[in-house]
């Protein structure tokens, strides 16, 4: 029995290996390590049609792929490293895993605060982390800033994401960048003192608000857009935080060319395409905002109007990510 299982499984594995190995030919292919999955396939197919260059991508967690890239170094077959938040791109840049790109197309298409100053990485889509609320229980005039949610009048009414989540880390890092550690600590302590419910899913935060479990939350904008696409009467509204001061916190999904890319020019072509012609393919399916100011936002976010964005460069809050974790530990934020 054991022997049969062993023989069978070895055959299956060998066949698979042959399949994988034979499919692996050098040639006109850009290989991407991607922490992002959604809509990539369609976008890459469109890119192949436009340019004749095919794209292969290997999906994984941002941090894991960065570790892998670092371990593989000159042995890597990845030409592009793509993530769903800025922090891992910035760390990859600091670790020397990315090479500078000099592209006028990218510099025009991507605003300066959404790319690395030396062109090591570029934001490709914007993810806005802002305040959401239930219209029956909250009047939007009550809402103002992330900091204001630390006020005791919000006690027992808040839902937020856990501290292990990178979006929470980036938001808190941006608080540190603007206020310094101590003041940011007071804000997060205020959230904790308000008995904020910590939920490990933006979708469930939104559903809990809809069901009456809390009144106000902080989520990425596209999760609400997604729920609204399924059910236009979903009873949660969006509020752009901090419009009276620095603007709402914006994170990016972005990419950079790896130091060991076989053909850096081809990799740059892919990034240029994603930042220009491919913007719609890349961001629309997930209701994200294009980085390119020339490209209009997708339909649902378009209804939410324009807003003021925090101009803080993603590299800056990325550098404060570790501090943000320490701060949340200190504040007792789960």
């Amino acid at each position: 029995m054991m022997r049969r299982v062993l023989v069978l499984s070895t055959w299956v594995l060998l066949l698979t290996a042959c399949g994988v190995v034979s499919a692996f030919d050098g040639g006109d292919t850009v290989r991407v390590y991607s922490g992002r999955h959604y809509d990539l396939e369609e976008a890459f197919l469109a890119f192949a049609e436009d340019t004749g260059v095919s794209v292969e991508f290997l999906f994984g967690g941002d941090a894991e792929l960065r570790e892998r890239l670092q371990a593989e170094a000159d042995q890597t077959s990845a030409d592009v490293f793509m993530t769903v938040d800025a922090a891992n791109l910035q760390i990859a840049a600091e670790e020397g895993l990315l090479q500078p790109t000099d592209s006028e197309v990218l510099e025009t298409a991507v605003p300066p605060n959404l790319r690395h100053p030396d062109g090591l990485w570029f934001g490709l889509s914007k993810r806005v982390r802002t305040i959401v609320y239930h219209p029956d229980r909250v009047d939007p005039s009550e809402l103002s800033t992330y900091e204001d949610l630390a006020d005791p009048r919000w006690s027992g009414r808040l839902c937020m994401r856990n501290s292990t989540n990178v979006y929470t880390q980036s938001l808190v890092a941006s608080l540190i960048a603007h206020h310094g550690y101590e003041e940011a600590l007071d804000v997060v302590r205020g959230w904790v003192d308000n008995d904020t419910q910590i939920i490990n899913s933006d979708v469930q935060i939104l559903e809990t608000i809809a069901a009456g479990g809390c009144d106000v939350g902080i989520t990425n904008h596209y999760y609400l857009a997604r729920l609204l696409a399924e059910d236009p009467s979903f009873p949660v509204r969006i509020f752009w935080a901090n419009q009276g001061d620095r603007g709402v916190h914006v994170n990016i999904s972005g990419a950079g060319v790896t130091t060991w890319a076989d053909d850096p020019d081809q990799a740059v072509t892919l990034l240029e395409w994603l930042a220009t012609d491919g913007q719609e393919e890349f961001v629309y399916g997930n209701h994200e905002y294009p980085v390119n100011p020339e490209v209009p936002p997708p339909p649902i976010p378009a209804q939410w109007g324009t807003f003021k964005e925090d101009p803080l460069n993603a590299a800056e809050f990325a550098a404060l990510n570790a501090d943000a974790i320490r701060l949340m530990e200190e504040a007792g934020y789960d």
Partner: peptide, 24 residues
């Protein structure tokens, strides 16, 4: 996720691709 080569996807990777962005 960390070791697989390009072009080798398993069921658990497939689930994670969709679940990581809450596309349950």
């Amino acid at each position: 996720l960390l070791i697989r080569p390009f072009g080798f996807t398993t069921l658990s990777v497939w689930v994670w691709e969709l679940a990581s962005e809450s596309r349950w």
